[in-house]
Design a protein around this nucleic acid. Sequence first.
DNA 1: CTGAAAGCGCTTACAG
DNA 2: CTGAAAGCGCTTACAG
Lengths: 339, 339
Amino acid sequence: MQSGQGGSVARQQRRVTAVDVAREAGVSQTTVSYVLNDVPHQKISAETRERVHAAVAKLGYTPSAAARALRTGQSDIVLLLLADMPLGHTAIELVEQLTQVLQRKGLNVVTRIEDGGASDSLWADLAPRTVVVLAPMRADRRRRMEAAGIQVINAWRCDAEDVGHDTLAHSQHRVGELQAGHLAAAGHRQLGYAAPADRRLSDFYELRLQGVRDACGELGIAPPVVREIEADKDLAAVAAQEWRAAGVTAVCAFNDEVAFALLAGMRAAGLAAPGDLAVIGVDDIPVARFAEPPLTTVDQHMGIVAGELAQAILRRQDLPEASGEPRGESATVVARQSA
Amino acid sequence: MQSGQGGSVARQQRRVTAVDVAREAGVSQTTVSYVLNDVPHQKISAETRERVHAAVAKLGYTPSAAARALRTGQSDIVLLLLADMPLGHTAIELVEQLTQVLQRKGLNVVTRIEDGGASDSLWADLAPRTVVVLAPMRADRRRRMEAAGIQVINAWRCDAEDVGHDTLAHSQHRVGELQAGHLAAAGHRQLGYAAPADRRLSDFYELRLQGVRDACGELGIAPPVVREIEADKDLAAVAAQEWRAAGVTAVCAFNDEVAFALLAGMRAAGLAAPGDLAVIGVDDIPVARFAEPPLTTVDQHMGIVAGELAQAILRRQDLPEASGEPRGESATVVARQSA
DNA sequence: CTGAAAGCGCTTACAG
DNA sequence: CTGAAAGCGCTTACAG
């Protein structure tokens, strides 16, 4: 490729900058910045504004995020760190809802699924204003982020200093309470709890189980008999038999997938729900209604959870909190035939 | 709060910069940069390197991504834009796999679910090197991104100029072929196709249906009878009856969720799979094995698809392509009892 | 082998 | 109401 064909040949794809806009509009770069950022207390004439906007449109100007971030020391990016665990339809809804709520506040949410600390280079590269962690995180990692000037919100573990207590953890506990409450209301006095075999789920599982336990205590019935359910119908059949032998008449499954495994095991063992053993799941996955029998489950309203999480995030910023966001129950029972 | 308590009071939380590291290590900022970036052809003594690294560790230095991006005009971020549609376990796996493959190449993948163009401010804020679009995208939006110096890779629509043809679209077509092939091999001559009611899924559905059609053509059997399946077992029961009346003996469901609805409808109508109507799904969702009867389905190997997509992305960069990435079938049939 | 200096594109006191 | 200028923290020719 030849070079030097004339002095002012445009470099390929030179970026359009605020200086270009200023020149086009016949104003200074300062004014361009004021107009574009709607800086208060800087009375810019309507006509000037107009010229600037026109120039922006004509030139197709896009401000450099990097330059702005460097100058202000702050980006509008919120990084959502998800745990490396089976992420279901509920997790995705949480992400969607949180993205939307924060978007309205001018925060740009972006998501990353954890892959074991490899994403260390990520936050350095991304320079987010805040990292919301929905995954286990070692303290040193948190410290390093904070040293880099990033807000860290841990919504996973409910440390006293964190907001998690009001949001994720609490809603998981509530899920367990609802399951036990529904079953007890149907007359069951001895419950079982079907835990997932996947270790990555154990934090969630313990929160939910604790909800069941606490509800049982409050209701004055025996604590649940806990069993792990593998993704295998024959093993699930054995578990069902053993629960019945232990006097269990209804079981709270960790989630709908565990409930499906249990239901399949029961069919294999010639047992019927809810007669021989009532089953209630969590999540109301799309196929829950098509289970045999149709699965009673707990539907989590991630809009509510996301709203609370968003409040906590905004509270930590200098941003005004969202008002009038929907509040209410974070979960409700969807009664079908299995319990 | 008082101010001016002595001249050199540290501002709260001043950022540690390369200058601080240089001072601490007793070298220049240039040397710090060379060491940290492993710049070739700059022979730095091992001892100097050591001192720099020690200073970095001692001070907890994190380079400013914003400054680097501003200076180099390039970030290592790849933004993955997902369509606003029911995202299942397969989509998540694609994200995970793609994240991992590109991570190894030094690219930081970050994900965002589309919410109708509202994420326009996102790419401006994020300044990614590349945007990989797994969603419908209007041409003007693409142009604006490219004008901002961002690579756009459209893996959704298989434009001739795009890589999608080799990856997503092709794998979806393949899924349909596999379904039809499995059914034909079992002796079925007249197939049905169960389409999803959700319009947001129609692009995928048409790709898969075309695969079924093409396979039927190749096999010399009649084209599939297409019916839409709502998430309602009574409606699904009606569809099943009509298929049978039309001589259909087996149906390819758009995905496992549609298959579950159909299976539930069949049970309600006193029909059994595969005897009265064979059913094959797509995705092998975790509960597929617990369907009644256990669901035969097509498992998509997102590792393969992600690998191909990653190749295409790297090819567009100046980065060397990954060699030795796994290649092979993008999907296979998981035979259970329903077909 | 190492360093002084320019410049990426913004925002924001500060001075008119 | 508008503009000239400093500076955010890097990278990278260029000069020793």
